[in-house]
Design a protein around this nucleic acid. Structure first.
Lengths: 222, 222
DNA sequence: AAGAGTCTTTGACTTAAATCAATAAAGCGT
DNA sequence: ACGCTTTATTGATTTAAGTCAAAGACTCTT
C-alpha cells in the first residue's frame, strides 16, 4: 500500500512533487478503524487530519435536538478535517467510519513545520483550499435555490461514470446517506428517484442507477 | 475606499497585522470596471487575482459553438481567480462585470513573493480559508435544518451590538439583501420580522431593529 | 429457515415557504 | 414638489417537502 500515491490524489496535495510527498510522509501514519468507530468528535483538539485509503467515513453534526446531519461522506483518496488544522484547535464536526476503513493520519505540527520550511507548498495547498471552498459555495447555492429533483439530478450526473457506453452511478452507500448529503430525508429522495424513473431518465437495478438520458437529466439539474 | 481597511475585512487577509497589510498593499491596486467590461479572458496568463469591493462579476466559459455558460457570480467580499494564481496557470475561464464594479487587484508575483519571504502569512491565509469553510458548513447546516424564523433570530443575535443597554441591529443594507443572506425572499423575511415583532421580541424604527428580549429570541434561534 | 432489525417505498396529511398580486412607502432625479 | 422607480408590506393561493404511518424488501443472526 503506497501512501504517496494516495496523497497525490487528494485535492490538497495533488500538485505536490514526489520529493515533496516524501517530506510529507514523514508526518503521516496509518490508522485503521472499524465500522461505527469514532475518528474524532466535534470540539476535540485538532491534532491531525486524515486521508481515506479505503472504506468510508462521514462528517456529521448533531443539531440541538439530537438529529444527525451528514455534511459529507469521504471515500477513498479524500481528505478529512484538513480545514481544522490551520484555524481552530478544535474539530468543527464529528467523524465516524461508516465502513471498516483505513486512513492516513497527518499530524498538525508536521504539516505546519513543513510549510514553514518550504513555503512553495503553501501555494499548492491554497489552490486546493480554493477549490474546496467553491464546492461549498455551490452546495449552498443548490440548497437554497434548487429543489430536490434538481439536486438529485445534478448529484447523479456529478458522481456517475461511463461504463460500457452507459452512464452509471453506483449506490455504494445507503439511500439514507445520500438523502442526508442532498439535504433531505429518505422518503423525499425515494419519491424523487421514482419521479426520475417515471420520466424514463434513469433506471435502477442491482444497486446501480443507469442514467438513460443524460441530456434530459442535465436539463433537469439546471 | 481605503484598500487597507478593505483587505483587513476579507476572509483571506483579516488576520494580517497592519505591517503585513502594508506589505500586501504594495502589490494591490483598485480596478474600476463598467457593466459589461471584461476583467480577464480564458487562456490569458493569470497575472493577478481580484477581490470584489462592490458590484458583481460573472465567471463564464464559451463553448466551442460560442454559447456562453455562466459558472459563477461573485459579489462583495468574494475572491476571484485566486486558484489560478496559486496554480501558476492561465485563467481557466473568463470574467466580466455584470454591474459597475470596484475590485482590488492583487498581482500574482506580489503575493507569491510575499509568501516566499514570510511563510507565516500562508498560515494566516489558510486559517482564513479554514474559517470561511466553517462558516459555509454552518450555513449549510442552518439552511438544511432550521426554518426562517430561527435563521432570522440567529442572524439578528449574531449581528447585533449593545448600545445604551439595548441590543441593536443596524439595517445597513436592504431587506432584500438580508433575505438573500438568509436564503429566502423579501416577502418571507417581512413576515418573519412581523412575527417576531408580534411576539414582542423585537421592534423596528429608523432603520434599526431593537432586540427587546434576547433570551426569548435565543430560544427561537435554537 | 425464522425472526429481529434496519432500509426502502408508498400513501395520506400537514406545514413552511414560494409565488402571484396588489398596495403602500421610501428614494431619487428633474 | 412632482412623477418614476425601487423597496417593503400584506393577503390569497399554490407547491414542495416534511411528518406520520404502514407495509414490503433486505440483512444479519441464531
Amino acid at each position: 500500500m503506497d501512501i504517496r500515491k494516495f496523497l497525490l490524489s487528494t485535492f490538497l496535495f495533488d500538485s505536490f512533487s514526489e520529493k515533496e510527498i516524501d517530506l510529507l510522509v514523514n508526518f503521516a501514519s496509518i490508522k485503521k478503524v472499524n465500522k461505527g468507530e469514532q475518528i474524532f468528535s466535534e470540539g476535540q483538539e485538532a491534532s491531525a487530519f486524515f486521508i481515506v485509503i479505503s472504506g468510508k467515513v462521514k462528517i456529521y453534526k448533531l443539531s440541538p435536538d439530537g438529529k444527525e446531519h451528514t455534511l459529507h461522506i469521504h471515500g477513498k483518496g479524500e481528505t478529512v478535517a484538513e480545514a481544522a488544522i490551520f484555524d481552530s484547535m478544535d474539530y468543527p464536526a464529528s467523524c465516524m467510519a461508516i465502513e471498516d476503513s483505513v486512513l492516513v493520519r497527518i499530524s498538525r505540527e508536521g504539516i505546519l513545520s513543513l510549510i514553514r520550511k518550504y513555503p512553495e507548498l503553501a501555494f499548492k495547498m491554497m489552490s486546493g483550499y480554493s477549490r474546496r471552498l467553491r464546492q461549498f459555495v455551490q452546495k449552498i447555492e443548490e440548497l437554497s435555490l434548487k429543489d430536490i429533483k434538481s439536486r438529485l439530478a445534478g448529484y447523479l450526473l456529478e458522481n456517475s461514470f461511463e461504463e460500457g457506453g452507459a452512464l452509471i452511478y453506483n449506490l455504494s452507500c445507503s439511500k439514507k446517506e445520500i438523502a442526508s448529503l442532498l439535504g433531505t430525508i429518505p422518503e423525499t429522495l425515494s419519491r424523487a428517484l421514482a419521479f426520475l424513473k417515471q420520466k424514463n431518465l434513469i433506471s435502477e437495478k442491482n444497486n446501480t442507477i443507469i442514467i438513460k438520458d443524460p441530456e434530459k437529466l442535465k436539463l433537469f439539474s439546471g
